[in-house]
Amino acid sequence: MSLRLLRMMVSDGLVALLRGRGLTAAALLIITLTFSVSAVALLAAGNLAAAVELNSRPGVFRVYFSEETPDSEAAVVARRLRARDGIDSVTVVWADQARDEFLVAFPEMSAGVALLADNPFPPHLEVTVADAVAAVRRRELRATLGDEEGVVAVRGDDLWTRRLLELAGLIRRAGLATGLAFALAATLVVAGVTRLSLASRRDEIAVMWVVGAPRAFISGPFVVEGVVLGAGGALLAWAASWGVFRIASVLADAHPLLGFLALAPLPLSSVLFLVACSVVAGSCGALLTVYQAARAH
């Protein structure tokens, strides 16, 4: 295909889109809306996974003792744990320290904490498991910590981290699946637009055929229309996801309880995925219709 022919196809395609600007706008809107769902799902999944990674420490457990347990006994348990395989460190956090740590993390809660007569934060051990220890072994270790003398509870992020990461994965997969499903919808939208465009230029195309215009010259502009509509829709969907990201960032900054979120926009790989899906959908929709029309000739 010569460069001149390619240039003609592109310019004719763009002119046709401009001529039918009402239809072009409607098609772009539909494609944007459909791909926006996928874009926002991918944005949410990515940020949820990032927030979990950022805020969780799967290798850290907190071991809580009963109120009656003397500090000396907690120290003995700490010593015993330090001697075990797979444990990196054991730190004893006394009740006052626990309260101070909380107030550093959440200063706006200090007034509420000051109203309490007793310190509600129990003493506990912070047990850090070595990075090399596998998840299964970590769960076994956590179970045995509960058997130690005076221990009433063992808490860690492990289970929630796993659940949240699974949820993030699920949202991401849903985003990808809807992306593919909506690509089919975009194909049908572009096919419809191409059909209307073909109908409005029927006379022109009939003349093109009888004067011997190459097939690429006739069908090329329609494919260009499909590609532009698809790519345009995906880029607008990306812009919409950027808008959602900006709004979420402002909300997170304004609300202290959402401070644990470190939001990021849709990564380039996801943007490329959406654009690729929509370009393929757009060109397939156009080609499908052009092929049907060509068969009629």
């Binding site: 006379d203 022109e204 009939a206 003349v207 055929w209 009888v210 004067v211 011997g212 215009a213 190459p214 097939r215 060509a294």
Partner: peptide
């Protein structure tokens, strides 16, 4: 084949009974 037909048509000039001019151009 279609491509050959188009090549052949490019060697012809055709004047139709109804002119078949493109109204918008």
């Amino acid at each position: 084949a279609v491509g050959q037909v188009q090549r052949l048509r490019r060697r012809m000039g055709i004047v139709f009974q109804d002119g078949r001019l493109i109204a918008s151009r």
